[in-house]
């Protein structure tokens, strides 16, 4: 399940829905990304997230499909917010169910690492110094690439 939405999400509710009724599930892993108050030495007042309707949902679904192929997991949910957010607001939710914790942790991390470099979202910050588009980080590329090496191993 993937969803792009303006409104906040209830992580507890989403995890309950993901887990509900599946007796095979022995592990549920989740990640929640939130807005920090400081980025690159400037204080952040608001963070505005933009996406590319149509492509963004397809890219998220492709990442979920790939995670399900790579890891022994049952269900994966991804919710990503767009629009204007403020420090402490939740941005993204990833939930994974599996029989055991290893696959659940791995798939959760994989989805986030790929989302960071492949899903079309862009962040614009309003800081004490004015507006600026957030630049892509080399460390995010390295995190996504590390999964390719781990497959070749």
């Amino acid at each position: 399940m993937v969803r792009v939405q303006h409104e906040a999400f209830d992580a507890g509710l989403e995890l309950a829905k993901l887990r509900e009724g599946d007796r095979r599930v022995g592990a549920v892993a989740a990640f929640i990304g939130t807005v920090r108050d400081v980025n690159d030495d400037a204080s952040v007042r608001t963070l505005t997230l933009e996406h590319y309707p149509g492509m963004t949902e397809k890219a998220l679904s492709a990442i979920v499909d790939e995670a399900k192929q790579r890891f022994d997991v049952y269900e994966i949910a991804v919710i990503h917010r767009v629009g204007e957010l403020a420090p402490t607001d939740p941005i993204v939710f990833v939930g994974v169910t599996s029989a055991h914790r290893g696959a659940a942790f791995d798939a959760c991390r994989f989805v986030m690492d790929y989302l960071k470099t492949r899903a079309p979202f862009w962040k614009k910050e309003l800081t004490s110094q004015g507006e600026r588009w957030v630049e892509a980080r080399a460390s995010d590329d390295a995190a996504a690439t590390s999964w390719e090496r781990s497959v070749d191993r």
């Binding site: 990503h80 941005i91 960071k116 862009w122 630049e135 892509a136």
Partner: peptide, 26 residues
């Protein structure tokens, strides 16, 4: 058409071609 493209990919009549900076979501 919503799929990442490379420089030598052919563009056809009616295609939707999007230009954007490296992504920064999550």
């Amino acid at each position: 058409n919503h799929a990442v493209a490379r420089p030598d990919d052919v563009v056809r009549d009616g295609d939707e071609v999007a230009l954007f900076p490296p992504v920064t979501g999550g």
